[in-house]
């Protein structure tokens, strides 16, 4: 579907940047939301120059500050004349060690990744409903599939997002809303810079293309790279006493 009106929160970096490029180059009308106005303008210029589009719109919206959500969505609705798709790639990340060392840091991460993300999606869902349904694509993580030693808190925040999106799917699908929950494995982005890449590490462009395909088809759950679907199938079925033993 090209020509769609798409709002991206987190489209200036990493996977969001790659998605914004593909969408604007195929003719979708992209609006970028992010917290740094200067960065937004640079990314908007990037999309405009790459796609040859007249201008790409952007507006300030900070996932750490819920007071910016309603205004940002209302603004996007107004300038685009309605919203067909909303993509959320923005999120917070810190290692388990960092989060354990600073409980406030853990609180902030849980707020950004779960409660603020839900609040933003509630605004987005209402706007999508006004345009007749639409697609809500949110990035969760394979880390949310199972409680695991290296990602106790981050994983829990993503498990919440995964459950929320499944619930939305059941509740609003008949009203025309399609939810796409993207579960990337390890992807080489600035979020994961400095971490040791595990097997099956993906690239931002590859995950972006898979997420867009998922949006076009209305696939409720997208594992990216797709090998993670099978890896996680195994991991979900490992008995707890074995998980505990292997410290995975």
């Amino acid at each position: 579907m090209s020509g769609a009106r798409v709002v991206l929160l987190g489209g200036t970096k990493g996977i969001g940047r790659a998605m914004a490029r593909i969408l604007s180059q195929r003719g979708d009308r992209v609006l970028l939301l992010g917290r740094d106005v200067d960065d937004l303008e640079r990314s908007a210029a990037d999309l405009a120059v790459r796609s040859g589009a007249a201008a790409i719109l952007s507006a300030r919206c900070d996932l750490a500050d819920p007071s910016t959500f309603a205004g940002a969505i209302a603004h996007a609705e107004e300038v685009l004349g309605g919203i067909d798709r909303v993509v959320v790639t923005a999120a917070d990340f810190a290692t388990q060690e960092e989060l354990e060392a600073t409980p406030d840091r853990a609180l902030a991460l849980c707020a950004i990744n779960f409660s603020h993300t839900v609040a933003f999606c509630e605004h987005a869902r209402a706007a999508l409903a006004r345009a007749g349904g639409g697609v809500l694509c949110v990035f969760s993580s394979v880390a949310g599939e199972r409680g695991r030693t290296p990602v106790v808190i981050y994983g829990a925040s993503k498990a919440g997002v995964t459950a929320y999106l499944e619930g939305l799917d059941h509740r609003f699908r008949r009203d025309g809303l399609r939810t796409v929950c993207v579960k990337p494995g390890f992807v080489h982005t600035s979020m994961t810079a400095g971490l040791k890449p595990p097997p099956f590490a993906g690239e931002a462009e590859q995950v972006a293309a898979m997420a867009i395909k998922g949006m076009d088809r209305g696939t409720p759950v997208v594992f990216a790279p797709s090998i993670w679907r099978w890896v996680m199938l195994v991991i979900r079925n490992i008995p707890r006493f074995v998980m505990r033993r292997i410290g995975f």
Binding site: R42, S43, A45, D46, V49, R50, T189, S190
Partner: peptide
Amino acid sequence: IKADRFLSFDDRTGEL
């Protein structure tokens, strides 16, 4: 390689 944005293009002069 992650600082890969295109910043401006002038389609009269071709300056990118």
